[in-house]
Design a protein around this nucleic acid. Structure first.
Length: 885
RNA sequence: GCCGGGGUGGCGGAAUGGUAGACGCGGUGGUCUCAAACACCAUUGGGGUUAAACCCGUGCGGGUUCGAGUCCCGCCCCCGGCACCA
């Protein structure tokens, strides 16, 4: 056999054997515990996988393989998130149909995943664009519709002018579309929403029980944005009569013939400091005001509104922008003290949050303060520090007491918030209220490549669900499906699809918007439990067995998109009695990205760069011909556009699949970004070669039946010390895999191998019986412990040592605490906490013995001689600290 | 500004309040080779010494403790997210 790692000679062969033996088929032993380990399912892009994707898949594979060996029933599936914009755009570019394209790309993904030896059960695979899958996506949509959780309304929505569709709030990053990078425009069109806001509180509360990264949980909390406060009514002074009909929905209402509007505040304690109030430019009360404030004010107001309309959201919401606003000429009454305060209109108040109107307290709010200063409005202090010391306004701290607040003077802020809330509730002018930042999830897209929404619009303007046994509403296969750009879906122009008759024979037309891709990926983890079921979306029994996903692995970029949506759907399905869990993903892990050293050219004089760039991206080839002083390198995420991608094919070809796997595990903690390095890959080749040589060298004294013998023999000290290392390594490796510390899992194996190599060098030529037995155990254990990380090598070595079959079918080594226990320990001798010496002693040594031995240390003595010993701290098994002065 | 995560050798990173720098990469010296590559051996935080001893050292300043990379308080910096959300 080879005494080094020669991947070309065996890796592909093992992959073939695994496939033939159906090694990765989900096991369902009755008495076994279950483990559901899953990766975010990918959109299969034409670029194929890079080694960066492998960093997601390999660690999940490691924990799943270990769980199989530990006797779990493991569900480790993979499928494809095929519907959606990216696939459609690429298909348009390639002048092909997305279905065909996806099939080809998914095939490439699968081949690449198999190339690196990932143990997916492919018999359970599907794409979200398979009619047999999206039939059930539509079925869940219908469930939501029946429950009033899917609805259609006219709304100002985010329109992406490049992709020619609307997008959800979650898909907008800093005013730009996450996918296309286009600056989104506001468009008023009727759209479909899921009522995720109904679940805001539960989505927030249940985060506490999840074993997820803090950062993701906190992003979700921020996104949901719960705040507690008081909503109360403000009357417009002088009984101004409404000029136009008022709409209750928009918080405008008539109170005894006078106009009123609602405001929401989290700082009701500052209500006595209100010196003005502000309406958003879109606020419907304004239409009533303009009729009564006279032509001058009306003209100014309309001018301001027109101006606000032309501003993009991004510009309007830029925080550093100077405040603008206009006085309406009308006043409102502060219900707390009866004061008349001017009503202003300003675009720093958003129509989409709260009531679209605020009470402004410049003494205690930075924005109101800035506004008041600019327009010369009064600033009144109503909160002071408890000691009433002078403070600079605006004073926004919440610790303090009320001043200038009538009967509430001297009351602490927190108490006054409760008291004022109760007082307003008593008068019927307001109530304490919880406000969320979360908006409903906009689900419809004006694009072809998505799951059709199973709705028929009848002639009389009704909306009917397509009957369940008529599902799926299949996407028609057509040649031209490019977005129309007029706000309608391309499906709207396909007459055969659009025109239908309902059961009563009435003419109608189908809904032509499709669902965004995130709908399809909000339940796929349930389908994996029962993927071939054509009678129902999943059997409740199977879903209850496998759910929740025990370990879900993917990138952090989905924090407030997929991960929030999937939680929402699961809760809806839980309420419908279709799943037994309230949360889909018990544990979540985010992998870091793989970065590649990427060449850039310094800008030429006068050359313009994109914002944030320091230079111009160049190819590796061009970099060779650029003078050194004009060239620099940066670590950048691998991407096709940067030309810095390393493919799994290249890495496997040059170094081998196991070397790649071990490198990705070892190079950094799982969640950290890593810097791709060929030297690092070579290091793993060295490590694996060392293992092959070690096993080869051990064959001369390898004792296959060691297990039957070793338990009956006491063994010499050498035997014991080898077994100690073996069992310590078992413990460390097992724990490290469980806690996703794959870097230390590999490093513990390296330490183990280094030790064993030294031992074989020293004793291999003339092995004692105890050595041969314990080293045989060690070799076998080593092969099993590397199996999750380097499965090809493990199976190859398993054959070398004369065992049959696959290591994945073997039992994971069991840690024996007794065998791992030390009999000798190194004790540190400290003087005043500083290390001065160490000594070896039996672990059983008493505190007195430890202290006595430490006191004799000449190195330590030199530091406490002549000083008074005040105390001696003895920590058995660790150290002795002599405190002297 | 707010929220979250960090800051340890030349680099990636180890370290239940108990011997800081495991393991790897790189470097240096050597073996092998005609030579190179690969591989192997030794060495590698800084200062200091022939060698030791010893001194310094986990972003900065304080504190708690017999003992702090780890806990507490106050800062600085980096990364990620949100951002006029009342």
């Amino acid at each position: 056999m080879a005494d080094r790692y020669e991947p070309a000679s065996f890796e592909a062969a093992w992959q073939k054997r695994w496939k033939n033996a159906e090694l990765f088929k989900t096991r369902t032993a009755d008495d076994a515990p279950k483990f559901y380990g899953m990766d975010f399912f990918p959109y299969p892009s034409g670029a194929g996988l890079s080694v960066g994707h492998c960093r997601n898949y390999v660690p999940t594979d490691v924990i799943c393989r270990m769980k199989v060996m530990q006797g779990y029933n493991v569900l480790h599936p993979m499928g494809f998130d095929a519907f959606g914009l990216p696939a459609e755009n690429e298909a348009i570019k390639n002048k092909t149909h997305p279905a065909k394209m996806i099939e080809r790309y998914a095939g490439t993904y699968r081949r690449q995943m198999e190339l690196i030896g990932v143990s997916y059960d492919w018999s359970r695979s599907f794409s979200s664009s398979d009619p047999s899958y999206y039939k059930w996506t539509q079925w869940i949509f219908e469930l939501m519709f029946k429950k009033g959780l899917a609805y259609r309304r006219l709304a100002a929505v985010n329109w992406d002018p490049i992709d020619k569709t609307v997008l959800a709030d979650e898909e907008i990053i800093g005013g730009r579309a996450e996918r296309s990078g286009a600056i989104v425009e506001k468009k008023w069109i009727p759209q479909w929403f899921f009522k995720i806001t109904d679940y805001a509180q539960r989505l927030l509360d249940d985060l506490d029980e999840l074993n997820w990264p803090e950062g993701i949980k906190s992003q979700q909390r921020n996104w949901i944005g719960r705040s507690e406060g008081v909503q109360f009514s403000m009357k417009v002074a002088d009984s101004v009569k409404p000029a136009t009909p008022v709409d209750d929905d928009f918080q405008v209402r008539s109170t005894k013939g006078s106009l009123a509007f609602e405001v929401f505040t989290t700082r009701i304690d500052t209500v006595f400091g209100m010196t003005f109030c502000v309406l958003a430019p879109e606020h419907p009360l304004i239409d009533s005001l303009v009729g009564v404030v006279g032509p001058v004010f009306t003209r100014r107001i309309r001018e301001y509104q027109e101006n606000a309309k032309t501003l993009s959201d991004t510009d309007r919401q830029a925080t550093n922008r100077e405040k603008t606003g206009v006085f309406t000429g009308a006043y409102a009454v502060n219900p707390a003290n009866g004061a008349k305060v001017p009503i202003w209109i300003a675009d720093y108040v958003l129509s989409t949050y709260g009531t679209g109107a605020i009470m402004a307290v410049p003494g205690h709010d930075e924005r109101d303060y800035e506004f008041a200063r600019k327009f010369g409005i009064d600033i009144v202090q109503v909160i002071a520090p408890s000691d009433k010391s002078e403070v600079k306004l605006p004073y926004v701290a919440k610790d303090g007491i009320l001043v200038n607040s009538g009967e509430y003077d001297d009351m602490p802020v927190v108490e006054s918030q409760t008291q004022l809330g109760i007082w307003m509730e008593g008068l019927g002018i307001g109530q304490r209220k919880v406000q969320f930042r979360l908006r409903d999830w906009l689900i419809s897209r004006q694009r072809y490549w998505g799951c059709p929404i199973p709705i028929i619009h009848t002639k009389d303007g009704e909306m009917q669900l397509v009957l369940a046994d008529c599902l799926p509403v299949e996407l028609p296969v057509v040649e031209n499906y490019e977005p129309s750009g007029d706000g309608s879906s391309p499906l709207a122009h396909i007459q055969d699809f659009v025109n239908v008759t309902d059961l009563d024979g009435r003419l109608g037309h189908r809904e032509t918007d499709t669902m965004g891709g995130f709908a399809c990926s909000s339940w796929y983890f349930l389908r994996f439990c029962d993927p071939m079921n054509d009678k129902e979306a999943w059997s409740i029994k199977l879903a209850n067995y496998w759910m929740p996903v025990d370990c879900y692995v993917g990138g952090s970029e989905h924090a407030v998109m997929h991960l929030l949506y999937a939680r929402f759907w699961t809760k809806v399905l839980y309420d419908a009695g279709l799943v037994a869990v309230k949360e889909p993903f018990a544990r979540l892990e985010n992998q870091g990205q793989v970065l590649a050293l990427t060449p850039y050219r310094r800008p030429k004089e006068g050359e313009k760069l994109d914002l944030g760039d320091e230079g111009v991206l160049v190819s590796y080839k061009d970099a060779e011909s650029i003078p050194e002083e004009d060239l620099f390198y940066r670590w950048a995420r691998m991407s096709k556009s940067k030309g810095n991608v390393v493919t799994p094919e290249e890495a496997v070809e040059q170094y081998g699949a196991d070397a790649l796997r071990m490198y990705l595990l070892f190079v950094a903690p799982f969640s950290a970004d890593v810097q791709w390095s060929n030297d690092g890959m070579q290091g793993q080749v060295r490590f694996l070669s060392k293992i092959f040589k070690l096993v080869d060298d051990s064959m001369t004294f390898y004792y296959p039946d060691w297990r039957d013998v070793i338990q009956f023999e006491d063994g010499d000290d050498l035997c014991k010390s080898i077994r100690r290392r073996t069992h310590k390594t078992i413990q460390k490796a097992t724990e490290d895999i469980d806690r996703f510390a794959f870097n230390t899992y590999v490093s513990s194996l390296m330490i183990y191998v280094n030790d064993l190599v030294d031992l074989v060098k020293k004793h291999g030529a003339n092995p004692s019986r105890g050595f041969a037995l314990s080293l045989s155990e060690a070799i076998e254990t080593l092969v099993l412990l590397i199996s999750p990380g380097a499965p090809h090598s493990a199976d190859e070595l398993w054959t070398v040592i004369g065992q049959g079959g696959f290591t994945m079918n073997e039992v994971w080594p069991k840690f024996d605490a007794k065998l791992a226990a030390d009999d000798m320990v190194t004790i540190a001798v400290q003087v005043n906490g500083k290390l001065r010496d160490t000594f070896e002693i039996e672990i059983t040594a008493s505190r007195e013995e430890l202290e006595a031995t430490a006191m004799q240390s000449s190195k330590a003595k030199a530091h406490f001689d002549g000083l008074a010993i005040r105390k001696v701290i003895v920590i058995p098994g660790k150290l002795v600290n002599i405190v002297a002065s």
